[in-house]
Amino acid sequence: MYPLTTYHLHQIFNELDRNKDGLVSIDELMSLLTRLGLHAKRPELELLVGDDKALNLFNFIFFYQSLNNIIVEENRDQIKERHLESAEDDDLRKAFGVFDLNGDGFISCEELRIALSRLGLWDEKSCGRDCMQMIGVYDTNSDGLLDFEEFKEMMSMDSLESS
Rank of each mutant, 00 (worst) to 15 (best):
R42T: 07
T5C: 03
R82K: 15
E150N: 00
L116K: 06
L38K: 14
I79N: 09
N75G: 07
N68L: 14
A95C: 11
R35G: 02
E28C: 08
V24S: 06
F58I: 12
H83D: 12
S86G: 00
T34A: 14
M1C: 07
Q133P: 10
S126A: 14
S126Y: 03
G22C: 02
L29T: 11
S31R: 08
G97K: 15
M154P: 05
G105Q: 00
S163C: 11
R82P: 08
L48F: 03
D139M: 06
L23D: 03
V72T: 12
K41Q: 12
R42E: 13
T5P: 02
H8Y: 04
E124W: 00
F60A: 09
E153W: 09
I70M: 07
D158V: 00
T34K: 15
S156C: 07
R82G: 06
V49C: 05
T5H: 01
L84G: 04
I12M: 13
F148N: 06
E74T: 13
S31W: 09
L36D: 03
D91E: 13
F62D: 12
R42K: 14
Q65A: 10
S142I: 02
C127I: 05
Y64G: 11
F99P: 03
A87K: 15
I61E: 00
L33Q: 09
N75W: 09
E73A: 14
F60W: 10
G120W: 01
L32W: 00
N14H: 08
N68C: 06
D123F: 01
D139W: 05
E73R: 12
S156F: 09
G97P: 02
E44M: 05
Q133H: 13
I107G: 06
H83M: 12
G50I: 06
G105W: 01
Q78V: 04
F60R: 06
A95K: 07
D52M: 09
K20D: 12
S108Q: 00
G128T: 02
F63V: 04
L84M: 12
R129L: 14
H83W: 08
T6P: 03
F58G: 01
H10Q: 15
L121Y: 13
F96W: 07
Q78F: 01
L47I: 10
C127Q: 04
L146V: 05
R113F: 03
N102C: 03
A40M: 12
E88K: 15
H39Q: 12
S117H: 08
R42I: 04
M30C: 10
F96E: 08
V98P: 05
H10F: 08
L45S: 03
L4S: 04
D91Q: 07
Q65I: 00
L36Q: 11
F99Q: 02
N59L: 13
E153L: 15
L67N: 08
R35C: 01
R113C: 06
E111I: 05
C109A: 15
M132V: 08
G144A: 06
F106C: 07
I26V: 15
F151A: 08
L48R: 13
R129K: 14
K53A: 05
S66K: 15
F60S: 05
S142Q: 14
S142M: 07
M154R: 04
I79G: 09
D51I: 04
S117D: 12
L38G: 10
V24D: 08
V49Y: 01
W122R: 09
K41T: 10
R76G: 04
G103I: 02
Y138K: 09
G97L: 09
K94V: 02
G128W: 01
Q11R: 15
Q11T: 12
S25E: 11
R82M: 11
F106W: 10
I114S: 01
